[in-house]
Design a protein around this nucleic acid. Structure first.
Lengths: 238, 238
DNA sequence: GACTTTAGTAGCAAATTGATACTAATTCGC
DNA sequence: GCGAATTAGTATCAATTTGCTACTAAAGTC
């Protein structure tokens, strides 16, 4: 086994050609499933077949952090910062350039974001349901899968669902959002039981009548102030 | 809100100075907690204070993918490919260079790996318990936290614990590994009950007598062959 | 006024969990 | 040899959680 510790210091040496892209997978509820925002690349050089649609993407500019870049890309395509924007994964590897010349390392950092309202689609952008994705590059397809998995893994760690709803909402609306995010149906009674047990929502005195059927009470997101269970001082954080 | 869709194509343009590092957080069971492998940078330029220890790191070379780079860095420091090596997160941002010159974008992709046996520490490397970490750069400290969280999030998604044990092991050993990975104690009866319910292990006819106490039966990891519940063809994977 | 539709709750049986207490098989000290 | 200590493994019970069915409540539709 090698005894070299070269790795400790040889880092930060840039490879021959390194490009970095931040890809953003924006998701929004649309009908009975989630939709992802794709950008048309029609008319662009080499935009044929599987290259006609792509994820919104850009490289970091100036002194941006990766998070800042993702936020800017999202703002550019939907006009507002998503209510949730987190990193899902970085994929990368070398790719030999077209003319067989020197290799170029292409690294893509994937982010996923949630957008409450799909908004109006413009000509070059479109919300596409997850079940009807067009042919995409393998990398973009992979990033969408990773984004959805990463989002689902966080659904019960963070109050993600509430960020997709207006300040007050009915419990049926909340359940629908959860079903969309998780991609499966939930049981009404069980859903409400555990929701009330968690005390994450608070009833308002307003009701909403939506067509036929009994009016639904409106609730608001009101997480309990967890008392910091910090006894003493945590020196290990200093 | 901006109507520009510049982001779709302006990607892949490298910023002024972009460096990429793959940092590897190698973890091993050591005594009653997990230990992380640090590399001494003593004697190197600028290695003072919080720069005396760092994570093993390197930039991708030639035509390596990020995964390949992480595997190589791990091999270089512990002599073997870890039994598990996965990406935890990428952190990055701009940093003004020392002389106040142009900004340089530094991106670090963090990996975590699990190593069964801590092996012999060499002079320039050391296994350090998570509770006794020395002062590290903020980025390395953050990456260690992210690595531990990412690993813990996967403990019950993947059979991680078995990769830290020899082919046959006692159930007490298995429980200890889980306790180390999760950082908390587990109940013996409950642990065995759910383990046997999952049918992930299979008893051998061997027993091991380890000092005093009743001998323990040896088990091996034998996950049930889940019958692919694929009815028909999944066209959406093509 | 009966029927449909949506909201919300009650109640029950099955499954899961946390805990204590027990039995089993070995080593150590004498 | 024999009891105490130690580790392995199981039994049992109560409390909690979960999945489900069935019910009541309040609106609109015909």
């Amino acid at each position: 086994m090698p005894d070299r510790t070269s790795s400790a210091r040889s880092a930060h040496a840039a490879p021959r050609a390194l490009t970095l892209a931040v890809d953003v997978v924006l998701l929004t509820p649309r009908g009975n499933e989630l939709a992802v925002l794709l950008v048309a690349t029609e008319g662009t050089r080499g935009a044929r077949g599987r290259d006609r649609w792509s994820l919104p993407t850009d490289a970091p500019r100036g002194d941006e952090s990766l998070d800042d870049t993702a936020a800017r890309v999202a703002r550019d395509v939907v006009g507002a910062t998503p209510s949730l924007l987190e990193q899902s994964a970085a994929v990368g590897g070398a790719r030999r350039s077209n003319d067989g010349g020197p290799v170029a390392t292409q690294v893509s950092v994937g982010y996923f974001g949630l957008v409450p309202d799909g908004g109006r689609p413009e000509s070059t952008k479109e919300w596409v349901g997850l079940s009807e994705l067009p042919t995409l590059s393998a990398r973009h397809r992979e990033e969408i899968d990773l984004a959805v998995s990463a989002m689902r893994a966080r659904v019960d760690q963070q109050p993600i669902a509430f960020r997709l709803l207006p300040p007050s909402f009915t419990l049926s609306e909340l359940q629908s959002v959860y079903e969309l995010l998780l991609g499966r149906r939930l049981h009404k009674a069980s859903f409400r039981r555990s929701l009330h047990a968690s005390a994450l929502v608070e009833a308002t005195d307003e009701w909403r009548s939506e067509g036929r059927g009994r009016p639904a009470q409106l609730f608001r997101y009101a997480p309990p102030r967890r008392k910091r269970a910090r006894r003493g001082i945590r020196f290990d954080l200093l």
